[in-house]
Structure formats: structure tokens, C-alpha cells
Design a protein around this nucleic acid. Structure first.
Lengths: 231, 231
DNA sequence: TCCGCTACCTACTCGCAGGTAAGACTACTG
DNA sequence: CAGTAGTCTTACCTGCGAGTAGGTAGCGGA
């Protein structure tokens, strides 16, 4: 799970600041994800990072600043992964599908990052949750734009945008929760989890219990869920 | 939000143990929900409860035991609220609808309880998360049974149960997330939030962008979302 | 009215973890 | 070979909060 550095003795090798900072952030994400914000000690983080505590403070400031930096880094990585994965000229369901695959692919390849980003950040109050809320807001806007663009909401005359936005919030929330659930049930590959959510939000239970499933255009038989990216 | 006791001076009124324990748990849920587990001090909880710290230890044991007791109490309350709200002889969509209304009704009336139950418990590791996972497991089983009972899953020959269970997990997760989202956007009434999730999971985006919405049987016109229970 | 029990308190101990002071080692530059 | 800038360390201070020792006050029973 987390790479176990051999116990450090004596002085660490001299490295340029940028490299050290990356190492420290990696270590911090690892420790925060395993222990949570409060239970993580700066001593432990510095030990995992292979340096001594004052380096932490010299480079990353206080514990809270360090945590915020972790959150920002992981949030940025995730949004970039999604933005890279989605194909803007496709029909809406395919865009949604590729977005979901990118999202679950990222989570699968960055369990620790997702853990600290979502679970930890949301449980600490104040600026951390705000940081997270900002990222979620961007994701919601993305989905909402997709929905609004893809069709009108004929039955909700004036509130179309708000309606779309809150549906998008529900979807994003479902994705976050399913990702959390996946952390505890890691045996399934990313594509299967993504396909499940895709079916749920695109088809709905009403269709699914009737046997209608969504499937990507022209690839496989309708009844096999898309394997997709591996965990 | 939380009832502000006047600053206590001198000795508290003598009360039977059961009553004190309830007071203490109320105070603990309040403080835990606002500050989180680690940031909450036993001093603060005892102060809010209107008693002195040794009483906490005498009645509720250690801080961890106190927290676990809070979680269990809130979890039990929530499952009871849902079980009471659902009507077993109705068709599946109506059962789901009433379950969702009961759930969001509970959360709306117990913001602090939900906060500590979900956000706090899930972010602390170990036994607390396990406690929560147990409750979630029961909720998932409930929904999965509903799905399996309501119809076959024709396209997934042998894995029907597992498929249903993981869809149920996604739904429960969506509900949890939407409830969290609702904590930060509390202006909407419970019924509207419940109706949104109902539409999402029952109809799916595929229908919704086409203008098809779900509505409770024989109450209103199909195009108005159900206002439902008030916050 | 005295006993004993339960509710309740003040006033501590003590370890842990965030944060820092002050200096030592390395490498580059002239 | 100085001088300087940046890297890195040991060894400490300090406050906060979990948990406790030991004692006081009200109440019910005989």
C-alpha cells in the first residue's frame, strides 16, 4: 500500500528544494490518508518523508498549510485527469461515460490521494472543506453544463439551470460516494464501477429493473458491462 | 443551531443517571458535529452538558466510548425513522419514495446527528467506521431486497444479487452524499431534495433530459416535482 | 438523626505533538 | 581558500487535553 522507507539513520542526502517538497507531499498524503488529519503527527510525516521535522516547517509551513497544500495538489490532479479524459465533441451520454471512466480511473490509481482529498478534507471544517467544496463546485458545473447543453428541461420552465445544477450535484455526490464505497470494496476494476454508475444515472432503476441497460455505442454486446480501465 | 446553556456556576442540580446520560449524549453530538472528533475536548462537552468532566468518565467511559455511543444512538434512530416511514405493501417505486422521504426527513430534523453519524464517523478509522459501515450495510440490504423483489435482472444472468447490491450501494451512497450536500445548502425543503434523488435514480438522466419525470401515483400533474415534507 | 449511596465537584498529573532556536554540513563562486 | 547561500540536524520549549485522586453535597431509608 504505502512504500515503506528503510529506517533513516544520520543525515539525509542533499536534494534541491523542489524535489524534497514533492517527497514531503507524497509522504503527507500517505500518512494523512491512513491516519486522518488530527491523528497524523508531523513527526510521523517527517519520518516517512525521510527528513527531520524542521524541514517540514521550513518548506511547507504549519501542519494546516501542509494539509491544504495536499488537498490542492490532489484536487488539481483530479480535475486535470477528468478534463483530459473527456471528449468534448461526443454526444452527452458518451461524454458522461468518459468522464466517469476518467474519474474512477484516477481514484483507482490514487487511492491515498482520493482518501485525503475527499474523506479527510470534508471531515475537517473551515478552509479545508471550502477547498474541497470549490473543486466539487467545478465538477458540478461541468456536469450541469453537459446536461443543459444536451437538452432542454421542458417540464421545469424557468428553473432549468437550477434543476440541472442540483441533479448534477446529486450525480457528483453519487460518484464521490461510490468511490468511497469502492475504497472499501477494491476488488472490482474501475470500468465496472464506472459502468454501474453510468447505468444508474443514465437509465435509472425504472429502466434497469425492466432489463434496459445503457451501453457504449458500437463496441460490445449490450449485456456485458464495459470492463474499461483496470484498478 | 445548538442551544446555548448559560454559563454554569457552582453545583449542578441532582438528576437521575438516565436523564444525565441523555443530556450528555445530546451535548456530545452537538459538539462532535461542530468540531469533529479530535478537535472536541471532553472539557467542552462537559461544559455544554452542564456538568463537570469526571461525570463524563463516570457515566460514559472514555472519549472513544462516548463517541461510539453517539454513533450507535444516531444510527438506531435513523434506521427506525426509515423503517417507520416505509410502506411495505406498495409497489417498489413508491416504497423507494417513502424511504427517501423518511431518510431526508430524518436528516433535516437531525442535522447535528447526521453530521456526527456520517461525516465524523466515516473519517475516523477503526471501530467507528465499522459501526457506520454496519448501518450502511443494513440500509443497502434493504434497498437491494427491494430491487431484487421488484424484478429480475435479465441481462446479468448469475450475478443478479451482486448487481442489485452494488446498485443499492450506489443509491445509498448517493443519498448520503446528497444529504451532505444538503447540509451545505439547507434552503431547500426535504421533500424537494428527496424528489430530486428519486427522479435521478428511478428515471435516470436519459429520461430526464427527454422530459420524462417520475411522480407519485395519482396526486399531481406529471410535470410538477413533488413538494413533499417540509424541512 | 445517623448511615450509606449516588450524584457531583475542584484540582491536579502527565504524555504527546506542534512548533522553534541554534547550529552543522555541503557546495558553489570568486 | 574564504564567504555565502541553502540544506539539514539535534535538542529543546510549551500548551493542550485525556484521564484521575480524593473529597463534598443532597437524598432515601431505618
Amino acid at each position: 500500500m504505502h512504500a515503506e522507507q528503510p529506517v533513516r539513520t544520520g543525515r539525509a542526502k542533499r536534494l534541491p528544494r523542489a524535489v524534497r517538497e514533492r517527497q514531503i507531499l507524497d509522504a503527507a498524503v500517505d500518512v494523512f490518508s491512513r491516519l486522518g488529519f488530527h491523528a497524523s503527527s508531523m513527526d510521523e510525516i517527517s519520518e516517512v518523508a525521510g527528513i527531520s521535522k524542521p524541514m517540514l516547517y521550513a518548506y511547507l509551513g504549519s501542519k494546516e498549510e501542509l494539509f491544504a497544500t495536499c488537498i490542492r495538489r490532489e484536487a488539481t490532479r483530479m480535475m486535470e485527469a477528468i478534463a483530459t479524459g473527456v471528449e468534448p465533441d461526443q454526444p452527452p451520454d458518451v461524454q458522461l461515460w468518459s468522464g466517469l471512466r476518467a474519474f474512477f480511473g484516477f481514484v483507482g490509481g490514487n487511492r491515498a490521494g482520493w482518501q485525503v482529498l475527499h474523506r479527510q478534507a470534508s471531515s475537517q471544517g473551515g478552509p479545508f472543506a471550502a477547498e474541497l467544496a470549490d473543486m466539487r463546485g467545478r465538477a458540478i458545473s461541468l456536469v450541469a453544463a453537459l446536461l443543459v447543453h444536451s437538452s432542454d428541461f421542458p417540464n421545469v420552465p424557468r428553473a432549468g439551470d437550477k434543476e440541472a445544477e442540483s441533479l448534477a450535484a446529486a450525480l457528483v455526490g453519487a460518484g464521490e460516494s461510490l468511490a468511497d464505497w469502492w475504497l472499501d470494496n477494491p476488488e472490482e476494476p474501475a470500468g465496472v464501477v464506472a459502468a454501474r454508475l453510468m447505468n444508474l444515472v443514465w437509465m435509472g432503476f425504472g429502466d434497469l429493473v425492466g432489463g434496459n441497460v445503457w451501453h457504449p455505442p458500437s463496441r460490445r454486446a449490450p449485456d456485458t458491462p464495459q470492463p474499461g480501465a483496470e484498478s
